[in-house]
Design a protein around this nucleic acid. Structure first.
Lengths: 141, 141
DNA sequence: AGATAAAAGGACTTTTTTATCCTTTATACA
DNA sequence: TGTATAAAGGATAAAAAAGTCCTTTTATCT
């Protein structure tokens, strides 16, 4: 479903949402260690998220990554599309160039409901709200 | 979700279910042309499916691929697991090593329905039945 | 101003996936 | 029995994804 980079991105964003803030930035090293993820690869991913204004960063001593108030309002759908492109939730499950409700591939019906469901959920939940649930339920990231 | 090889495999199997039979075998070349898929790559995929008894084949003149009566009773879940391994429908969407209903990742609830629903549908529908529907509704493969 | 810390960016390597080609084996049929 | 046909199998090539390293830029603090 998601590329490795996208998985790391989602986890990093959620980790930042829970553990960082403008006053408490986190460096790549810390995040990579906490998530048990390759450090340099994660650095690239955070760069990309930062360039696309999905996370915030500061250089220099006491610098690092965090989520601004604006960032917290975005959704994981934005993160996913930033990493894996805009078609993740629309592409045909069999890779057919044309596949829609009018012109469905043999698995369209089976795949549509579920994919669309995930899409909807990721789209309509703010990262900040998700983070609150994660804290409340003490979920691992 | 599925690897390219897996997508080709699903399409090839359905194509055989609709267009081939023991009395009317199809060669790689024909199938590849019909599906607009790389020929040699498809050959490898058909080999693998054949080795795992998900499709049938015959060498020599008037040889080719087809589905036996047994093959037709299998499900696309078998095809998918043959190509992408047994964990496709169980693996955590974020790649976490432990992720279950008891110990859910932050996206477990959202993803579970999606994956499990597709899994169920692919598992409980025989390839032969799917093929009938494809013919009836004149769907593209 | 100088030293240090951390992200940004570019270049590169490794691994995996996708795709191609060539040789061998099996079989049908004249 | 020889020839042609088609899958099976092995080896390799090309492309994409994952992962690493090095240099530059920006900021902080003394």
């Amino acid at each position: 479903m998601f590329s490795q980079a996208c998985k790391y991105a989602i986890r990093a964003v959620l980790y930042l949402a829970v553990h960082a803030s403008k006053g408490k930035k986190l460096g790549v090293k810390e995040i990579a260690a906490a998530l048990d993820v390759p450090k340099y690869f994660l650095a690239k991913i955070l760069q990309q998220l930062s360039r696309n204004n999905l996370i915030s960063s500061a250089k220099g001593p006491s610098g690092g990554f965090y989520l601004s108030e604006k960032n917290v309002e975005a959704s994981l759908k934005d993160v996913v599309e930033c990493m894996d492109g805009p078609d993740v939730f629309n592409a045909c499950i069999l890779g057919l160039p044309v596949c829609s409700s009018e012109n469905p591939c043999p698995l369209h019906i089976q795949a549509f409901a579920y994919r669309e469901g995930l899409h909807y959920q990721l789209k309509h939940q703010a990262i900040g709200d998700l983070a609150k649930r994660i804290e409340r339920e003490e979920q691992k990231i």
